[in-house]
Design a protein around this nucleic acid. Sequence first.
RNA 1: GGCGGUGUAGCUCAGGUGGCUAGAGCGACGGUCUCAUAAUCCGUAGGUCGUUGGUUCGAGUCCAACCGCCGCCA
Length: 672
Amino acid sequence: MAKNFYITTPIYYVNARPHIGHAYTTIACDTIARRQRLLGSDTYFLTGTDEHGQKIQRAAEAAGKSPQQFTDEVSAEFRALWDRMRITYDDYIRTTSDRHKRGVQELWRRIRDNGHIYKGSYTGQYCVFDELYVDVGPGQPCSECGRPTETVKEENYFFKLSAFAEPLLQLYTSQPDFIRPETRRNEVIAFVRSGLRDLSISRSTFSWGIPVPDDPKHVVYVWLDALANYITALGYGSDDPSKFKNFWPADVHMIGKEIVRFHCVYWPAFLMAAGLPLPKSIVAHGWLLFEESKMSKSRGNIVRTETILDVLGADALRYFLLREVVFGQDGSFSFDALVQRYNSDLANGLGNLASRTLAMITRYFKGEVPYPSNAAAHTGEEDLIAALAKHTINEFHELFEQHQFSRALELAWALVAAVDKYIVENEPWALAEKHDEHSRSRLATVLYTSAEALRIVTALAHPVMPEATARIWIQLGLGEIANASLADLRWGQLKLGTKLGKVEPVFPRADKSAIERMQMIEDQQRNPAGATEAQPATGTQAPPPSASQGSAPLNKPAPAATPDGKITIDDFSKVELRVAQVKVAEKVKGADKLLRLEVDLGTETRQILAGIAEAYAPETLVGRKIVIVANLAPRKMRGLESNGMLLAASLEGGKPVLAAFLEEVPVGARLK
RNA sequence: GGCGGUGUAGCUCAGGUGGCUAGAGCGACGGUCUCAUAAUCCGUAGGUCGUUGGUUCGAGUCCAACCGCCGCCA
């Protein structure tokens, strides 16, 4: 009986290029989707990009592009990457698409007509980076991210979130699995219990968004816009509601832990307000942290997925992330661990088992799967392997249902180890030396048993590693793995006489140079190409840079210089110089020389401190374009954090003169 | 500060409702086979189970306090 299964990734915010954090979420979803298809479910797997908001508008301006052109490009990059990673999404939703806009407006009307939207006004601090009103005083940094806030005064629409506290708590109680893992559920319950305030759900200070129905001066708040993708992609608000009927409510919304509140509080409240069914579960995973190695810098070490694909391939990355990281917890990524895992589990483990088993069948039985004709050739050892295989299948399914990917894979690999051991103990190569009937039957039994166990592990691992398992499947003589069914996978289905395909290594062993190669590609890619900085987004699950700062030592080694004191181009390229425009300038209390500046970098606003107060009056700086070192580690002065350094000539007597351009330059442009 | 979580072998982690000498994988070291991708297999490595007090015949396993780390508190 085919059931329907609907799974979603968050839609990724296009102010950042895709990186391994995005890949992690998407891989987990793809694996689940593939497994559901093999189980016979009618599966719908949705991903997409979140393309509205002030941040995007500004990033596009900085890049000298229209918002649409800008988002077209980044969105296409995401799709290209997913294709390379063998992501089998069924639909790709963009918030700038017409179908989405229609759906969002329909959702708005429904909520409004049900009486849950009212108009109010707001005066206060706004954080552009988080697209959020924050409850801090004027001039105070954002309570979320520490970036400077802007004072805004606007009239906008509010959602009566406060009315939904009770229904939400009831939901969490009656549906314990609604939020997983439990620690996130606890947080959400605590949050809602502490009381809910109404939520501002429109903006009128910028235009890059979806117009509010009947009041186009406002655009819909990015989170209401973004969350709605889960239903607009199914045709909600369109003429064809068939997909919506089939697949909504979603089985799984997979998200990163930083967007739990939006998905577990706002989203169900919006749906309740609209009178729509609620998703069945929201699963939050942890972040991927990047292990600090001696070679890398403390910041900017967000790994591009392409690097790994280039060197080890998609399967290796997919396997690594699901096997290494305990799902739900933070995990750490390093090239070292990746190669380690690849060699021990894939090359030496599954790959070698396939290689030795299939090679022996090829050699001893002319490439046809043998089976003993003599019952006496069958011993208790085969029963043990078969029993273990059966247990593995059952447990594997169980663990996968609970999203315990690492444990599921660990379990499957225990079967690989058991078969390796079984082979050594039975020495098929020695049996092959003898030509009596019993030895021949024993040999057939041992090789059949090994091949059958291999088949089962391969089938189980297929959703995780689609390519390699497809190749093993062909080598096993079983044809197209997509036709395999996981639902009735059981021992003994491998037919005798099956003609093997050509046997060749599936996971060639990686040597140490693989690590160096990946690190080299990363270094090259990271520095020269300026482009958009891979900053984390509100709407997506990218790990913030701070996530990796815990291990950053204070005493960084100085950049290596050549003996004559000259630096290489590589050294220079580590310095990220950018054009910034001063938005706010003021004296720092108690300091004679220090000014506090808020500068616009195109993609963000930053606070920097500069010792130029004696040469420049604050009011003369506002609006001026300056040059700053954008990737300087933050530093605190007078209790304020400086995130960068401006460039100025230092004259005799210490008088600074700011660097400037003769021609017009766009904010955010990089100096090289 | 409030709430929640967490601290087990070099690393990553298992260890419902307390009970034999605390486990797995990887790494490391020694050995073995030769079908296989210098792969496999075998053996070894001795961790006060964060600290200190309790409860108990008996506690990583329950309780309290403390220390460290993490998350949430729009």
